[in-house]
Design a protein around this nucleic acid. Structure first.
Length: 903
RNA sequence: GCGGGAGUGGCCGAGUCCGGCCAAAGGCGGCGGACUUAAGAUCCGCUCACUCAGGUGUUCGUGGGUUCGAAUCCUACCUCCCGCACCA
């Protein structure tokens, strides 16, 4: 399954081709020496192509290779099209794995991280990725993370930072907070020491992303360059819902608990409310814990994870603000304190979950919305009111017409919602979001220190700009948070009162780093601001952003949030960071995701050493569209490898002095070169590399056929074909393309050469190709069906001018009778019966008349392609104009369908 | 459950937006042939069925529908993948 370097799979002859290792190294060095991929600061508006920067794990895996090959190919293509291109790379260098690796190896995270970066950078170079390394960004150095701190300050100044208590996973043995991923399975054990994890409430820092919730969700509509899936995932994540907040007065036997608001999207069902429910951790619930039943429920029975809704009735009563009715109040575990207001009105007739709960607790179920009479299942009673639906088994959750709802009866749901909201005292329209503020505190070492000092007198104080950066202290290998153990570092003075104070020991979520790194590439060395505002305004947004779908929400949402904040407060003139987003598919093995645990990983390094980077790149790009998953197959790799060897051989053995004529065959080849270029350009524009590469491969095949067929090729034509093939492949297989470009005597680097352009009329190539294919197919069919053993001659005659003219008239005509229409034309009328017959045919097929070439162009196309028949059937081929063919033959020809006679 | 994406010939995969030379490109695999001592590589042809002159029939998850005409449009259903999920 895993190719090994000394595998004997490659035969001796395969190996006799070019030495990919040598070629690739050579050109990597030359590119680097010539600074080919550098984007100068004075570029006006370079095309910004970006792959999501990697976490430096030390190993480039196939997912990386695919991701970065896509951006590299596109960046190279744009460069060849004459654009300035910004194609940078950097390192998402903070994060937990470095800390763990450091502990295991008794080194420190910094050293480990830089080792990994060095390795991966080498691997990237060996893949031939053309990055502007002058713009490399590494998030774990103070020169970068000081700007995280600076931005934290700015967010704070703008009121977008908040400190509040939040629940975290806490391992009492390791004395540290754990990320959700580090809490194992159902049992919730610490992944390191298997101690049961506790929930602990800690003071945490939040960025108030919810302030931007509306804009973040509304602007998704305009992100037309993004995949629908990602857009939908972000919408769901933000989860905006419009509804009504209704006030319910809560009273007990001897106490008044005030007013509790409940959010509902179905204010129209308020007459059907038969209970009220509070979350187990709702403040009022907490006041009721003296009640043994409530206490028992809250502490022992409530199971928010379970499927069953559980609850306990209290002695309280809630007053329905619309009906004035008193409702029993329950504490229920399906009511979540962080959803809505942590309290809800229960309408079992029109909500499935409420229905289940009410059925279980014996609460009445009163339907108040009926299907509209004109809908399926709706029907009217004698009184003219629709009959209430049967809700004994399940809730009726659709909108409809209100019944049993006092003055609102008879209204449709939507109108009723509006009116109830407007006419009920204390009720108001409300919007609710699923999106929560972004908690960025991490109780770990390897991240950006949150620039805050805690003073007994002043409380938490943000470190002033002049004292930034707050640098990380030396790493100490300890159980808990190393920052907590860094006593000397922790001790400081309060920037406000000068008194003794301690530093905040939490660091930032690494998603903060990645929320703006794409701006840092614009001016990576700037030391008085995170990014050069003017240049960012010119260069942003990123034109093409490519990465894994796993970042569909978090990273991409945070980046959008940061961009909007920077637009509002830092003069950035863009409110969205990424114009086009491509979520690349997975590289799989036999339909399964590659993973270390499954042991089905193909190592890019081994592929590169055996087949070379170009082969790996070519195989990946031609295997599937970038967004699709595909299977890694050794056959595919070998096929790509052999293709490159063939290409190399074709160029190497090309004789520029070859004395072939510019005959019909050469013209055919020349024409195909243009057609290929035209198609490939479109494909590269849309990043459908697979189809562009197919064209290039077919062109090389054609050139080889030509070479084999002709005694001597027309040197100029052949050369142009090779030149086109090499340049079409250059974005994907840059090394071999440079080598061959050099062999062909190209000027400078192919990486900087212009992308080929079709010469002459590029329109209707598809018709030409189709005509040739159909004609060849027809000949085969005839030979086959008619059982012609050894054909000697094939005559192909194109249709006469008048038939083309007739077709043209018929195509444009709206008249009822096409025959009389075309007969108006003297040149057609004079054909007599033949014209009438053809006209009849056109009349019958008039709804499916083909688009065709002109007779001259048909003739020329077939004349150029005749060699294909000659070669295939080893026959004499004559391509005839209508007037050259004898009557019988010419009579059969139609536009797009030449007459064929085989003898 | 809700939302998103997808189902094409032995396999992979174009085509689906803008219905019509679409029995459906290309690759892989298979078969036959050329070359070779041979294998490999390379090249040519075949690879739904029937058919003695370019024809016919049945195909693009399944069933309906629109249309002169549907892989392509509409609709219902089935299956797979991915998000979110006791969200009020």
């Amino acid at each position: 399954m895993r190719p090994t370097p000394d595998d004997s799979r490659l035969s001796m002859q395969q190996r006799r081709g070019y030495d990919h290792a040598e070629v690739e190294r050579k050109w990597q060095d030359r590119w680097s020496d010539a600074d080919v991929y550098h984007a100068p600061d004075d570029a006006e508006d370079p095309t910004y192509v970006l792959g999501m920067y990697p976490y430096p794990s030390g190993q480039l895996h196939m997912g990386h290779v695919r991701n970065y090959t896509i951006t590299d190919a596109y960046a190279r293509y744009r460069r060849m099209r004459g654009d300035d291109v910004l194609h940078p790379m950097g390192w998402d260098a903070f994060g937990l794995p470095a800390e763990n690796a450091a502990k295991e190896r008794d080194t420190d995270p910094r050293e480990w991280t830089f080792d990994c970066i060095e390795t991966m950078k080498d691997q990237m170079r060996s893949m031939g990725f053309g990055y502007d390394w002058d713009r490399e960004v590494t998030t774990c150095v103070p020169e970068y993370y000081q700007w995280n701190q600076w931005l934290f300050r700015r967010f704070h100044e703008e009121g977008l930072v908040e400190r509040r208590a939040a629940d975290v996973n806490w391992c009492p043995s390791c004395e540290t907070v754990l990320a959700d991923e580090q809490v194992e399975a159902e049992a919730e054990l610490c992944w390191r020491c298997e101690t049961p994890v506790e929930q602990r409430e800690l003071e945490q820092w939040f960025l108030k992303i919810t302030e931007y919730a509306d804009e973040l969700i509304d602007d998704i509509d305009d992100l037309e360059g993004w995949p629908d899936s990602v857009r939908q995932m972000q919408r769901n994540w933000i989860g905006r819902q419009h509804g009504t907040r209704l006030p319910f007065d809560i009273e007990g036997d001897d106490a008044d608990y005030g007013t509790v608001e409940a959010f509902t999207t179905r204010a129209d069902t308020v007459f059907g409310a038969t209970f009220f429910a509070l979350a187990p951790d709702h403040p009022i619930t907490q006041e009721l814990l003296d009640d043994p039943e409530v206490h028992e429920f809250v502490h022992h029975e409530a199971d928010p994870e379970g499927d069953e809704p559980n609850g306990v009735e209290t002695d309280l009563t809630a007053t329905n603000p619309v009906t004035g009715e008193g409702l029993p109040v329950y504490v229920a575990d399906f009511v979540l304190s962080d959803v809505g207001t942590g309290a809800l009105m229960g309408v079992p007739a029109h909500d499935e979950r409420d229905h289940v709960f009410a059925s279980k607790m014996g609460i009445p179920i009163d339907p108040v919305v009926a299907p509209a009479p004109d809908d399926e299942g709706g029907c009217e009673s004698d009184s003219g009111e629709p009959n209430p639906p049967d809700v004994s088994e399940s809730a009726y959750t659709a909108d409809g017409v209100l019944v049993n709802s006092g003055e609102y009866s008879g209204l449709d749901s939507e109108t009723a919602r509006d009116r109830i909201t407007a006419e009920t005292d204390g009720a108001e329209e409300a919007t609710q979001y699923r999106l929560r503020d972004w908690g960025i505190s991490r109780q770990r070492y390897w991240g950006t220190p949150i620039p805050v000092v805690h003073c007994d007198d002043c409380g938490p104080v943000v470190v002033p700009e002049s004292d930034l950066p707050v640098e990380l202290p030396e790493f100490v290998n300890t159980t808990g948070n190393p920052l907590d153990a860094a006593e000397e570092w922790k001790e400081t003075t309060c920037p406000e009162c000068g008194g003794d104070a301690v530093r905040e020991t939490d660091t930032m979520d690494t998603f903060v780093d990645s929320s703006w790194y794409f701006l840092r590439y614009v001016s990576p060395d700037l030391d008085d601001a995170p990014f050069d505002r003017e240049r960012a305004n010119d260069w942003m947004p990123v034109d093409r952003y490519v990465g894994g779908i796993e970042h569909a929400v978090m990273h991409l949402l945070y980046s959008r949030f940061f961009t909007k904040v920077l637009a509002d407060h830092e003069g950035l003139e863009h409110r969205e960071p990424f114009t086009d987003l491509l979520a690349q598919g997975m590289v799989q093995l036999e339909g399964e995701k590659m993973s270390k645990s499954k042991g089905n990983v193909v190592s890019p390094q081994e592929i590169v050493s055996e087949y070379g980077a170009d082969t790996a790149r070519l195989f990946m790009m031609q295997a599937a569209q970038p967004e699709r998953d595909f299977d890694w197959t050794d056959q595919g790799v070998q096929s790509a490898y052999r293709f490159l060897q063939r290409l190399h051989e074709t160029v190497e053995t090309f004789d520029p002095g070859a004395g072939g004529e510019r005959d019909a065959v050469a013209e055919y080849v020349a024409r195909e070169v243009d057609a290929t270029i035209a198609v490939a350009r479109e494909d590269y524009d849309s990043m459908t590399f697979n189809t562009a590469l197919r064209e290039a491969r077919e062109l090389v095949g054609l050139l080889r056929n030509y070479r084999e067929y002709a005694d001597a090729v027309h040197a100029e034509t052949f050369r142009r074909g090779l030149d086109a093939a090499v340049r079409l492949l250059a974005p994907v297989t840059p090394h071999v393309a440079e080598e061959l470009w050099d062999d062909l005597g190209g000027e400078g680097f192919v990486a900087e050469a212009p992308f080929p352009e079709p010469a002459g009329d590029a329109a209707d190539y598809d018709l030409e190709r189709q005509l040739v294919e159909n004609t060849r197919g027809d000949v085969r069919q005839i030979v086959d069906v008619a059982g012609i053993e050894a054909p000697e001659r094939v005559d192909v005659a194109v249709a006469p001018e008048w038939k083309h003219r007739a077709l043209e008239i018929a195509t444009d005509s709206n008249a009822d009778n096409v025959v009389s229409e075309i007969m108006q034309e003297p040149s057609i009328r004079e054909r007599g019966d033949a014209a009438a017959d053809y006209g009849q045919e056109l009349q019958e097929e008039r709804q499916s008349l083909p688009r065709t070439l002109s007779p001259d162009r048909e003739f020329e196309t077939l004349r150029r392609a005749a060699w294909l028949l000659r070669r295939e059937f080893d026959v004499e081929v004559r391509v005839l104009r209508a007037e050259e063919a004898d009557g019988d033959l010419a009579g059969d020809a139609k536009p797009g369908r030449p007459a064929i006679r085989i003898e």
